Amino acid sequence: MANWSDPRTDGVGFAPRGAADARAADYDAGLRSYMLSVYNYMASGVLLTGIVALAFAWGGANSPAAAVFLSGGILKYVIIFAPLAFILALNFGIQKMSTGTLQMLFWAFAGVMGLSMSTIFLVYTGPSIAITFFATAAAFLSLSLYGYTTKRDLSGFGTFLIMGVVGLLVASLLNLWFQSPMMTLVISAVGVLVFAGLTAYDTQRIKSMYSYVAGTDMMGKAVIMGALSLYLDFVNMFNFLLSFLGSRD
């Protein structure tokens, strides 16, 4: 006679495992969609920055970029410091702003960054900029993939890397006074290493954030702020690498 109370013969006994597998599959699908949205925003922001920078510097010495940055007027400093204002607004206004407002600020920030970065086309040759861009893209993809797939907890590096960013800012400000070529190279080398580490760290942090925002109103905001973090990692790593790989006109 069959033992109907035996859980090994009870078909219902398989339901919890099947439900867990389904939940895990849904979670993985949601995570992939979330990360894809982050990367799409980040890549679109970089593309917009590049287009704006190239258009603003088109014409070389006769370009709008040359007119603004060589004139020494107040507009030059507005363009230089405007990206910082956008970053502060995005970080401190995330709770009060709607997702749509954050999206508009992100695109505006990427555009203003393009204006600010247009000077690289006045200083470096086009081929060296392209080579540096593709080198940065390859490094970014590798580091971000590592941050996404590694089982190692990278959170311990976060404080160290943020301190590195602060140190870079202080050293860069000091070098405006000393104008030391050797110090410039050291800052660039440290900058590449710091933002390489931040790329992996931020990717893992953004990935772990999904479990907190999934299915909530914060989902869209988390995507934009995650894209902003990776955008900044990419752009800063590119700028520091350009000091090594860029050929001046």
Rank of each mutant, 00 (worst) to 15 (best):
S5P: 02
T9L: 15
G11V: 09
R17G: 05
G18F: 15
R23K: 11
A29C: 06
L31A: 04
S33W: 04
L36N: 11
V38A: 06
Y39N: 04
A43E: 01
S44E: 06
S44I: 04
L47K: 05
T49Y: 00
A53R: 02
A57Q: 07
G60D: 01
G60T: 08
S63Q: 03
S63W: 04
P64K: 00
L70R: 14
G72N: 04
G72Y: 02
G73F: 05
K76A: 10
Y77D: 13
I79W: 03
I79N: 09
I80L: 15
A82T: 03
L84F: 13
A85Q: 06
A85K: 07
I87T: 07
L90N: 07
N91L: 15
F92D: 02
K96S: 12
M97F: 11
S98A: 10
G100M: 15
G111Q: 13
G111S: 15
G114N: 06
S116Q: 15
S116G: 03
M117R: 12
S118H: 03
F121S: 08
T125V: 01
P127Y: 09
S128E: 07
I129K: 07
T132F: 06
A135G: 08
A135P: 03
A135Q: 05
T136D: 13
T136E: 15
A138Q: 11
F140M: 09
L141E: 14
S142H: 09
Y146H: 09
G147S: 12
Y148L: 10
F157H: 11
T159S: 10
V166T: 12
V166N: 09
L174E: 11
N175R: 15
L176Y: 10
W177N: 11
Q179I: 13
P181R: 10
V186T: 11
G191K: 08
G191A: 09
T203H: 05
Q204W: 01
Q204L: 05
K207L: 04
S211M: 03
S211Y: 01
S211F: 05
V213E: 01
G215L: 03
V223E: 03
M225A: 08
L228G: 05
L230H: 00
Y231A: 02
D233Y: 08
V235G: 02
N236E: 06
F238C: 01
L241H: 01
L241N: 03
F244E: 06
G246P: 08
D249F: 02
D249N: 13
